[in-house]
């Protein structure tokens, strides 16, 4: 198969089978790396780091990167569109279904369960970010390895920043981007 259609097809498969968020694409990316040699396992590790430091999910970033490395700028676009295509098709079908059936009693009851589930997922995601951000990684691994509890577990400047941000956002109705930008500056100044 010529390169561009093959890029599209491989990332289409990844997009189709990875359910539930960016990290779900990882096993498929490792498999693709073994099968095609388009990128190495080290490239994937680098991309995880880059994805944590840029907007955009790891799957999107990896498809752009792999496409670019193998077939230039056109490759970057083709691979990313391949990744996005399955979810575009599936969501359009679901949205069509929902707009026709959202008065249906069973659909409404399903949402009775889906709503708290959604909130639970969002809370868990927040806790996950808090764990790596507000706690000190070394002290945490020492604690889980059976070491003693110590105050150095808490990353104080980060916790302080979180409290200030929380209060500021209650008072000021600014756009979240303003707070994100300010936090980046504080992070650089305090060397968080």
């Amino acid at each position: 198969m010529p390169l561009l259609p093959r890029l599209f097809f491989e990332f289409f498969k990844t997009g189709l089978f990875s359910v539930g968020g960016g990290l779900a694409t990882l096993p498929f990316l490792y498999e693709m790396s073994d099968n095609t040699g388009w990128f190495t396992h080290a490239d994937i590790a680098d991309m995880i780091a880059i994805s944590e430091s840029t907007p955009g999910a790891i799957g999107i970033n990896m498809s752009t990167y792999a496409g670019y490395k193998t077939a230039g700028i056109a490759g970057g676009f083709v691979a990313t569109l391949g990744l996005a295509m399955p979810s575009l098709i599936i969501i359009v079908v679901i949205a069509k279904f929902l707009s026709r059936f959202d008065e249906n009693r069973y659909v409404q009851r399903a949402f009775y369960g889906l709503r708290p589930a959604s909130i639970a997922m969002i809370t868990a995601a927040g806790l996950n970010v808090a764990r790596v951000t507000l706690l000190d990684a070394d002290a945490l691994s020492a604690l889980t390895a059976g070491g003693g509890f110590s105050l150095s577990l808490f990353c104080l400047p980060a916790i302080l920043l979180a409290i200030v941000l929380f209060l500021a956002q209650q008072k000021l109705k600014w756009h979240p981007v303003v707070f994100l930008a300010a936090s980046a500056v504080v992070g650089i100044l305090l060397k968080l």
Partner: peptide
């Protein structure tokens, strides 16, 4: 510099998520 900036951004992301949860709580649970 990138790492420090993103350590700061992650703190803000935490807080934003907490506030989103608080706003949605009453209508979901």
């Amino acid at each position: 510099i990138v790492q420090h900036a993103f350590a700061g951004i992650r703190v803000c992301v935490c807080v934003l998520i907490v506030q989103a949860v608080l706003r949605l709580w009453n209508k979901s649970v």
